[in-house]
Amino acid sequence: MFEVYITKAGKYLPNKAVLNDDMESFLGLINQATSKARRIILRNNKIQSRYYALDHDGKSTHTNAELTKNAIQELFDENFSGDDVELISCGTSTPDIFLPSHAAMVHGLLKNKPVELNSSTGVCCAGMNSLKFGFLSIKAGNTNNAVCTGSERVSLWMIADKFEQEVLNLKSLEEQPIIAFKKDFLRWMLSDGAGAFLLENKPRGPISLKIEWMEGYSYAHELETCMYAGGEKQEDGSIKPWSDYNPDEWLNQSIFSIKQDVKLLDAYILEKGAQSMRDALAKNKVSSDEIDYFLPHVSSHYFVEGLHKSLAEKGMDIPREKWFMNLARVGNVGSASIYLALEELMNSGKLNKGDKVLLSVPESGRFSYSYAYLTVC
């Protein structure tokens, strides 16, 4: 078995940062009315700026594949080029198309050479799952290196035009033309961007991070779906898929919009997060006292104090000064968020050899959690 190191990190955030008061100028107004939920949601999530692959007319400036390619190109230098890549592993919640895979579309843009590909789907854990595929490939000696990514281009899913037909349908039924909170909520939470890691079987450069272990946990066997797209939740908690709806219903009910069951999120996201992290640390015989930097991906600052409390209650009281987060500056970029946070930490000058770093990524899709434990070398 080989050792595995993150030897370089890259990122790509499209266009200029979008401040809170400018969001609706990019995403548009639904039914020509300012969202009543927007200010409340922004006050709770404490996000101050984010990035959109959009222009001021709501038109696309980049595809997801282009965002990912741009992040990967940040990994290349005089010592490592696209022709040196052996594996490309890409994770995203928002691929540009259903088929071919996201990794294949990224590879098509890189135009380097034949490589092995992997595409990870899901929600926020998709980026960590793509990282784990690269980690295991190098660990087993299948490849000497891997490029792993997390990326999202969700803004095009949230522009007002995507909800116009549903609003018209509600009006025709003489109902209030107000988009359900489960859809409007996420318009003020999510943003675009991509991050990339270069993994190798030897350390390189001034800072490398040895991946000691990775763990993942799903609670789908006991909990129903919380965050979803391409379907609609039924009374019994099951999801009726888009393919079981008529094409006119896709528009009239905004079937392809991203939705979240906020009550379910509040009930379980912290409880299962603390439980899974306790199990991951115990399995690998790591005490929370050994962690020098804790990088939790949280969708909103609303959850930060609750997460701190939940972890402490299970014997993992990590002081807040050890937490490293950039949510307020770059927004919630889903599967890319953990890449963007670690890239910033790696380039901050704060890390010292021997420091231990824990990455923690929850996913509310059906409640999954991923962890990675790193040593600075």
Rank of each mutant, 00 (worst) to 15 (best):
C124S: 15
G108M: 04
L110M: 15
V123M: 15
S120Y: 01
N118Q: 07
S119P: 01
M105I: 07
L117S: 05
E116R: 05
T121D: 01
G122Q: 10
P100V: 02
F98L: 15
F98I: 15
T121Q: 09
L110H: 04
L110T: 08
P100I: 01
N118M: 12
G122N: 11
S119E: 08
V123F: 14
K113V: 04
E116T: 05
V106R: 09
S101R: 05
N118V: 12
C125H: 05
P95R: 08
T121F: 12
V123S: 14
E116N: 09
N112P: 00
H107R: 00
N112H: 09
P114W: 05
L99W: 04
C124M: 09
S101P: 03
T121A: 10
I97L: 15
N118H: 15
K111N: 15
C125Y: 01
N112E: 13
K111M: 09
S120V: 02
L110V: 02
N118L: 09
P114M: 00
N118Y: 15
V123R: 12
H102L: 14
T121H: 10
L110C: 13
H107W: 07
N118D: 00
S120N: 13
P100K: 02
N118K: 02
D96W: 06
A104N: 11
V115C: 10
S119M: 06
I97T: 13
L99M: 14
N112Y: 09
S120W: 00
V106N: 08
P100M: 07
A104D: 06
E116D: 10
N112T: 15
L99S: 08
E116S: 11
E116F: 01
S120M: 10
I97G: 01
G122F: 07
T121L: 14
H107G: 03
V123K: 13
P100H: 08
P114A: 03
V123W: 06
P114I: 00
S101W: 02
S119W: 04
A103N: 02
S120F: 05
C125D: 04
E116I: 02
F98D: 10
L110R: 07
M105E: 14
C125T: 15
G122R: 09
N112S: 15
S101G: 11
A104K: 07
P100F: 10
G122D: 12
H107C: 01
A104W: 00
P95E: 13
P95N: 12
S101V: 08
P100S: 05
N112C: 13
N118T: 01
V115I: 14
V106H: 03
H107Y: 03
G108E: 04
P100A: 05
L117M: 03
